[in-house]
Write a protein that binds this DNA or RNA. Structure first.
Length: 410
RNA sequence: GCCGGGGUGGGGUAGCUGGUUAUCCUAGGGGACUGUGGAUCCCCCGACCCGGGUUCGAAUCUCGGCCCCGGCCCCA
């Protein structure tokens, strides 16, 4: 038996229906906010990703050489491709651009709960806006999407400015390290690190920063900083919209291209990999040869979302099973077509089963049975049976179709 | 890359201190039932992850690999 590649999954129809149902909710919501779908290639030049994230990520990517000897990579994320696309063909579109994508990504990592080597992201990029309101829109949209998906998510919202303000005396490498410790809330690691460079005086203020849950607590730590007004405006918008969230100025997001507002979302039932959403304000376009366009975006880990949702059933479509005796087999195709033409799912028996066996099958898989035998064929009628109630009647075909159509939920 | 637990029909399992034809449930196909139901009864289909070793004999013991689950690291 051939095995499927490690960290990948097969999806049976039940699961695909669940995934598509959730996906449809996400698309619908993003569309209502004015976001439109974009799509980029499944693979890109390797450099696109190393420019953004450094050569260190090569070990965690699917990298290959194409027949022309070019270094390529399966996309490990979609923000960089989208910004590449923006720079190469959308620079002149009226700003801001509101784009979303739903697509699969590939990372060569050790699989664990909610982490696969092929996984799907639903992401949003808001390009060319840099105001408290654009920051707030991204956060509110993220919340709206997670609600649409049915996930009770714990949203953490922060801003990098306060942390950078406190760390401004340190050299860049030390700043990055300190931020990584803070992001993990690893004060046991942070303290000796800062002591090692003679700055353990910062530890108490950093600790207070990471624990600040209100703006008063935040600014008590940082004092006046240039971003105070902007952070205040973001928070005001979130609060006026009754958003439930946690202020968290310990978020560092591990990447240096984030420029200001950052946020993350955590969902239950996920074990060690419980972050389902991450994003913030960033600047990337200049890396791909464009102007330094400010952007803001986030991505939702779709597979984690589905794991967190657990066992939910997608609504099943109304199905009609056409059950025939030998005399009705040919007419069955016409009858099935009449239902299909009205948008109703209709299936025929293909196995020469006797009527009893067809009915038994229909009872498991369908909502209605349409019985076609010698009598129906002779009189040009059908027998429509409601498999829930057990009621049945002999009617003309279009009456039967209309009756079933009336039962399809809209 | 590291640590722990696993891998038996499509799904779930018993066996696993080596020994006839590998257990049971479920799903699937057929029949009892060529004009009507998910019940019942009967039949059928279908599995020891792969490879080496020990042995008269391996699902069982052993080694390696692959994969799965959970965790560490990482997490763009």
């Amino acid at each position: 038996m051939l095995q499927r590649p490690r960290g990948t999954r097969d999806f049976l129809p039940d699961e695909m229906e669940r995934r598509r149902a959730v996906e449809a909710n996400l698309r619908e919501k993003a569309t209502r906010w004015g976001y439109r779908e974009v799509c980029t290639p499944e693979f890109e030049e390797l450099e696109l990703f190393t420019i953004r994230s450094g050569a260190g990520i090569i070990g965690e990517m699917y990298v290959f050489e194409d027949k022309g000897g070019r270094k390529m990579a399966l996309r490990p994320e979609i923000t960089a491709p989208v910004l590449r696309m923006f720079v190469s063909e959308a620079k002149v579109l009226p700003k801001p651009l509101r784009w979303y994508y739903f697509a699969d990504c590939f990372r060569y990592e050790r699989p664990q709960k909610g982490r696969y080597r092929q996984f799907w992201q639903f992401g949003v990029e808001l390009i060319g806006a840099d105001t408290p309101r654009s920051d707030a829109e991204a956060i509110l949209l993220a919340d709206d999407l997670l609600r649409a998906a049915g996930i009770p998510c714990d949203l953490h919202v922060g801003h990098l400015a306060p942390m950078k303000h406190l760390l401004q005396g340190l050299e860049l490498g030390a700043q990055a390290k300190a931020m990584a410790f803070l992001d993990k809330r690893d004060f046991d690691g942070l303290t000796p690190f800062l002591a090692g460079i003679g700055r353990d005086d910062l530890v108490p203020r950093l600790r207070d920063l990471a624990h600040a849950r209100t703006l008063d607590e935040l600014f008590a730590v940082t004092g006046e900083i240039p971003e105070k007004k902007r952070i205040g405006e973001i928070v005001e918008i979130l609060d006026k919209n009754s958003l439930v969230y946690t202020l968290d100025f310990g978020i560092a997001r591990g990447l240096d291209y984030y420029t200001g507002m950052v946020f993350e979302g955590f969902a239950p039932n996920l074990g060690a990999e419980n972050q389902v959403l991450g994003g913030g304000a960033y600047r990337l376009a200049h890396l791909f040869g464009g102007d330094d366009v400010p952007s803001c975006g986030f991505a939702i880990g779709f597979d984690r979302l589905m794991v967190s949702l657990g066992e939910v059933k997608a609504d099943r479509k109304v199905r009609v099973a056409i059950c025939t005796t030998e005399e009705g087999r040919i007419r069955g195709f016409e009858v099935a077509k009449a239902f299909r033409d009205r948008g109703i799912c209709a299936e025929l028996d293909l196995l020469d089963r006797n009527l009893g066996a067809q009915m038994a099958h229909a009872a498991k898989a369908a909502d209605f049975a349409v019985i076609l035998g010698q009598r129906e064929v002779a009189t040009g009628t059908v027998t429509l049976k409601d498999l829930q109630s057990g009621e049945q009647k002999v009617t003309p075909l279009d009456t039967a179709v209309a009756e079933v159509a009336a039962r399809v939920p809209r």
